[in-house]
């Protein structure tokens, strides 16, 4: 495998030196392109108080192509499916090399604050979110409590 690009090293160092509040990303012991990530549920969202684990992988041609990211912790969210895959434009066609690991994770955290049921990935969740938002939010809180709380 080619040497790790300096951009990745630089990003890793900055993630440690100036961590983003509510987000931690740590490279794996065996593969510096694979990151263990924890995103805390944003305040005033149904995910508040949850610690959500994600995995992030920087493909060979990063930053020319987007990192692969998915949730590992189960989450009840209209834009995240049962496999933990995330529907977010910057991870697909709106990717730009000006984005970084930190900006991607911030966007994902923002997605938790602002679910978008009109652009769903998890259809059943999105449906309920549109028809009965109260119940959907209760479900999201329950899932957060059951799966993502550190107790």
């Amino acid at each position: 495998m080619a040497a790790l690009p300096r951009r990745i090293i630089k990003e890793t160092q900055r993630l440690m030196q100036e961590p983003v509040p509510g987000i931690s990303a740590v490279p794996s012991e065996t593969n510096a392109r694979y990151f263990h990530v924890i995103v805390t549920g944003p305040e005033d969202s149904p995910f508040e108080g949850g610690l959500f684990k994600l995995e992030l992988f920087l493909p060979e041609d990063y930053p020319m192509s987007a990192p692969k990211v998915r949730f590992i912790t189960k989450i009840y969210h209209p834009n995240i499916d049962r496999l933990g895959r995330i529907c977010l434009d910057i991870l697909k066609d709106k990717w730009s090399p000006a984005l970084q690991i930190r900006t991607v994770l911030l966007s994902i955290q923002a997605l938790l604050s602002a679910p978008n049921p009109d652009d769903p990935l998890a259809n059943d969740v999105a449906e309920l979110w549109k028809v009965n938002e109260g119940e959907a939010i209760r479900n999201a809180k329950e899932w957060t409590r059951r799966y993502a709380m550190d107790n």
Binding site: I72, T73, K74, R146, A148
Partner: peptide, 12 residues
């Protein structure tokens, strides 16, 4: 943390 979540069935 992950081990805890796995144990609780909270992992995809």
């Amino acid at each position: 943390l992950l081990a805890k979540q796995v144990a609780k069935g909270g992992v995809v």
